[in-house]
Design a protein around this nucleic acid. Structure first.
Lengths: 210, 210
DNA sequence: TAGATTGTTAATCGATTAACAATC
DNA sequence: TAGATTGTTAATCGATTAACAATC
């Protein structure tokens, strides 16, 4: 038994793997698996068992020697660590094809996220409904995001508009941004950004093709 | 002047940054900027100038002391390194909301990629047209991908179908997969996979939120 | 020439892994 | 108890950065 490691700074790369562990555990739970060893979990994820044990050890002792990890228990613990014991409301900016696909995507709700505001600046789209949400004018972003106390936003606008949208989101109090626009955003140090760009991912792989 | 570094294995993490450099250079070229220093480029990307110079030095000497890099020249060189001097045909599997958004996305063509085949297994969708492409039955994947000599595929099907689709793509000769399904795929060592999962990215960020 | 910036080296920093005592 | 597997340490491996000679 060790004293709690409250003061140790967890490397971001370790945090980034927790959602993958959680995803695998959700799958195992659905399969009805009750216990799993770090070796089995590692094989499913294509990583080393030592890495899983080391990663988890930043947060506590969740396993049992000789047995492994209880799937439900570890799931619960990782959810707590990632602050996924609540549902996070998310603002979506951009109601184009991608925005529509995101609003209709069924994978968010079960995993802790609900898109609850949608914005666009196209007068043709404003006022229209998608999946039960009225598209709001971009001019009301600050007001509505503040009102809903929203901390997370998804940017699905063209690259040319993304920095302006970002500045407005940050001004509205958003602290985490998932950015689909192919551009590096400037944000204050306390705002987190994750990037999703299929083109750069494809270009990464063509290096290895002939 | 150094001898060419043909035999040095370039770390994958270095390769993964080249598309970001290219993206920034494309932007600079459009702005009409002719020359840029590693320090300026670094600032735009939020990384260190030493990292940019080190990364590029794996592939050659592209800059000029006292001046920096010629934007057009470096752009051309990175395109050559990433095998982006041609257009890559891409097969898309899954014609749901995400599949539609990807087919309609205008960002692929200018960057070296063209979705030229679309598959689905839903009889309602097969035969329908999206953006000039007829949706083909999943049963014809192997045949058509072989016929077109396609090496790159995008998976936009539910997680439950993704591994089966992957196995079929690999059997058809695909060597690079961009996977939107939230599941770790099993592939042979010579097949490259990149993952895009907005949920895990959001869950990564909630760790830092309160 | 003087100033600026590259390409490269070596030091530093950080992440992964092998190994094993502890223990279920 | 014997076997299995964790949690942790220390070694290894790899990536980043500081610094500067070379040189445009």
């Amino acid at each position: 038994m060790m004293p709690p490691k409250n003061k140790i700074e967890v490397p971001d790369i370790v945090v980034s793997r927790l959602p993958l562990y959680l995803r695998a555990l959700n799958f195992l739970a659905e399969e009805g698996v009750e216990t799993i060893s770090s070796a089995e979990l590692a094989q499913r994820l294509g990583i080393s068992s030592a890495q899983i044990r080391k990663d988890l050890s930043f947060f506590g002792e969740f396993g049992k020697q000789g047995t492994g990890y209880n799937v439900e228990f570890l799931r619960k613990k990782i959810k707590e660590i990632l602050n996924l014991t609540r549902i996070w409301d998310v603002a979506l900016v951009g109601a184009g094809d991608l925005g529509h696909a995101l609003v209709h995507y069924g994978g968010f709700l079960g995993q802790g996220f609900r898109i609850s505001l949608v914005f666009d600046n196209n007068p043709q789209k404003i006022g229209q409904e998608i999946a039960g949400l009225i598209i709001q004018p971009a001019s009301r972003m600050k007001e509505l995001i503040r009102q809903h106390g929203i901390q997370i936003a998804i940017i699905a606008v063209p690259a040319s508009a993304a920095q302006k949208v970002t500045d407005e989101l940050v001004a509205a109090g958003v602290r985490a941004i998932l950015n689909y626009a192919p551009i590096t955003l400037k944000v204050p140090p306390d705002v987190h950004v994750q990037y999703i760009d299929p083109v750069t991912r494809l270009q990464h792989m063509t290096y290895y093709l002939k």
